[in-house]
């Protein structure tokens, strides 16, 4: 008999939930199972997804990043403002990504060098970025640059009849691919797992703790900023007041994607599935029409609970095995 590696159990559970939710939808509504719904799903959740990928790294390292929502909003208004003053869109995006990476690195440095709790440091990041967004411009700015209006819509691929994969969805999938590579095929990525699983051991094994931690937060900042860039594609505007509480969705996606909130266990593709599960529940509730949107939150909460308890049981079993 093939012995299932216990670290795959949460991922498997995520896949089962994803299939179950999708199956339920397909069984209930004839239009649900079409590629088009799926493509829309990817499009609608692209910016959350990209940000959640960044959050995955931080959670894998045993930390937490609360600044995601503010970062997405900040980057959105930054790009919108830069475009408004006539900046080149690619330069604007580059500046935004650099700013995000820098902010992440600063938080990482505070956490590492002063041994401050990640929770509070990224909470400060949340407040700071939210405020800075309003400093740039206190209201929503629409984006009417030709790149957004004309070029972007053409950057899409027909994947199936009546199902066009938009550029935002491609960004999302590309992020997942890149992140999976970083997490599974680089020393840096493996060091993140090691630190998240047991920081003290990792230190005694001679792994570079500080460097890895700072880079992890910088990387998370980069992905959050990339999420902000994707959000401008999707919204065609920037608004400093938007995306409040997005970090919760990101964290929930990561956990439902099978990543242990205490760090060290999880897979980036799991986060992709987590984001899709959250999106599917939303879609399902929209399809239903009579169910209300608050059920989304309740269902997400219940799923969170199930995954947390599942992981607790697995880790407890691992301990008793010894």
């Amino acid at each position: 008999m093939i012995r299932l590696n216990p670290k795959y159990i949460p991922l498997l559970a995520t896949a089962v939930v994803l299939v179950a939710v999708f199956g339920t939808g397909a069984a209930l509504y004839p239009n649900f199972g079409t590629p088009r719904v799926f493509v829309n799903l990817l499009n609608d959740n692209a910016f959350v997804g990209v940000a959640a990928v960044g959050e995955s790294f931080v959670i894998l390292s045993g930390g937490i990043d609360l600044s995601v929502g503010s970062m997405v909003a900040f980057v959105g208004i930054l790009i919108a403002k830069l475009l408004q003053v006539g900046c080149d869109p690619f330069l604007a995006m580059g500046i935004a990504l650099c700013a995000g990476t820098f902010a992440g690195a600063v938080m990482g440095c505070l956490i590492h060098f002063f041994e401050m709790p990640p929770f509070l440091v990224t909470l400060a990041g949340l407040f700071c970025l939210r405020g800075l967004g309003f400093v740039i411009y206190p209201e929503s700015i629409g984006i009417d640059h030709p790149f957004y209006g004309e070029v972007l819509p053409q950057l899409s691929i027909l994947v199936a009849p009546k199902a066009v994969l938009p550029f935002t969805a491609m960004c999302f999938l590309a992020s997942v691919l890149v992140a999976t590579f970083i997490a599974s095929f680089t020393r840096f990525g493996r060091n993140i797992y090691a630190i998240g699983s047991n920081e003290n051991s990792a230190r005694l094994m001679g792994l570079p703790i500080g460097q890895t931690k700072i880079l992890t937060y910088a990387l998370a900042g980069f992905f959050s900023a990339a999420g902000g860039v994707v959000a401008t594609f999707y919204m065609q505007s920037g608004n400093p007041a938007s995306f409040v509480g997005l970090e919760l969705d990101a964290i929930a996606s990561v956990v439902i994607g099978g990543t242990l909130l205490t760090g060290g266990v999880g897979f980036i593709p799991g986060t992709l599935m987590g984001v899709l599960i959250l999106g599917l529940i939303q879609t399902l509730i929209n399809f239903n029409g009579t169910l209300n949107s608050w059920w989304t939150k309740i269902v997400i909460g219940v799923l969170l609970l199930i995954f947390i308890v599942l992981q607790k049981l697995i880790s407890r079993r691992a301990v008793t095995q010894l």
């Binding site: 493996r190 090691a194 699983s197 047991n198 051991s201 005694l204 060290g264 691992a318």
Partner: peptide
Amino acid sequence: VYQEVNLIPHL
């Protein structure tokens, strides 16, 4: 090699 095995249990 320490008494408390200093390895990464999840890897």
